[in-house]
């Protein structure tokens, strides 16, 4: 029973973090209709910012959220405005040029970080990095639990933004029907880069939250990009609620897979669920939740 509960807790805590990564990607997917294959790399840059602040100025990772999130938001704005939007206007046969551009951006970000920080493994060891508390026999990692709470807070804030503010409504309108939104007077281009900014900011937050319990090197982005799109498809493109379900589902699936099938099956289980959802529940959990 302990084993089951411990697995459940591990899966849930990890799922919370996955959800934040996924929400960022799903927003971008919903509004722009593209897969952002530089998503994990944005997270990696944010982790390096957090690391630098910690290593050179002693700033606590949670405080450095105030720096990393705006910084990556700006980076996201820039990428969308300068690199992705111009491609919309170019006449090309395939719309995938933008996706390819994100691949290129991801490579450049990785290599810039390698150029600056070399490939050395970095980590941020705070006093609370490995602290735990126990409920019964079940161990809860303190930083991961805090991360989970912050993730919930951030998601709530995002919902308020999407539902209550004009800008948020425009984002949702663009995601639902771009042409109609433009006809209604939404400046869709502005919306695209704001969305890209917010999506990047969210994953930046996830990176900063993750670094106290994880480690860092320039190639760390790739695996997270892959996880992010799995989460998005599980949740349904453009659905923030879906991404939460998607994130938690993936977290739980990986954890239970690792415990009951073997750790080598961790990734394959996520992928199989992904393919099944893609085929039998196209549109993901959005179909069920309708949000």
């Amino acid at each position: 029973m302990d084993l089951f509960l411990q697995t459940l807790v591990s899966g849930l805590l990890k799922g919370g973090l996955y959800a934040v990564i996924g929400i960022g990607m799903t927003l971008i997917m919903g509004v722009m209709g593209i897969i952002n294959l530089a998503h994990g790399q944005m997270m990696m840059v944010s982790m390096y910012i957090t690391y630098s602040l910690f290593a050179y100025a002693g700033v606590d990772p949670y405080v450095s959220l105030l720096v990393s999130v705006p910084a990556i938001f700006t980076l996201g704005l820039f990428i969308q405005q300068r690199l992705l939007n111009p491609l919309l206007r170019a006449e090309t046969i395939l719309p995938e040029n933008q996706v390819l551009m994100t691949v290129g951006v991801g490579m450049v970000l990785t290599e810039i970080m390698r150029f600056i920080f070399t490939s050395d493994y970095k980590s941020v060891r705070t006093s609370y990095s490995s602290s735990t508390f126990f409920v019964g026999n079940i161990s809860f990692s303190v930083p991961l639990t805090i991360d989970f709470l912050i993730a919930i807070l951030m998601t709530a804030a995002l919902f308020l933004f999407l539902i209550k503010t004009d800008l948020g409504r425009s984002v949702r309108a663009t995601a639902q029907d771009k042409e109609a939104a433009v006809l209604m007077g939404v400046d869709s281009e502005r919306i695209t880069y704001i969305t890209f900014g917010i999506g990047s900011a969210l994953v930046a937050a996830a990176g900063t939250l993750l670094i106290p319990v994880f480690y860092l090197y320039p190639d760390i982005g790739g695996p997270f990009t892959r996880k992010a799109f799995v989460i998005c498809i599980l949740g349904g493109l453009g659905s923030a609620v879906g991404a939460i379900f998607g994130g938690v589902t993936l977290g739980l699936a990986e954890a239970f897979g690792a415990t009951y099938a073997g750790m080598e099956f961790e990734d394959i289980i996520g992928l199989v669920i992904f393919l099944l959802v893609l085929l039998f529940l196209p549109g993901g959990f959005k179909r069920i939740t309708k949000v």
Binding site: L3, T7, S10, K14, F214, E254, A255, A258, T259, M263
Partner: peptide, 10 residues
Amino acid sequence: ASIDFKPVLS
């Protein structure tokens, strides 16, 4: 690049 070894360690 696995994040979480807890399931297997449990």
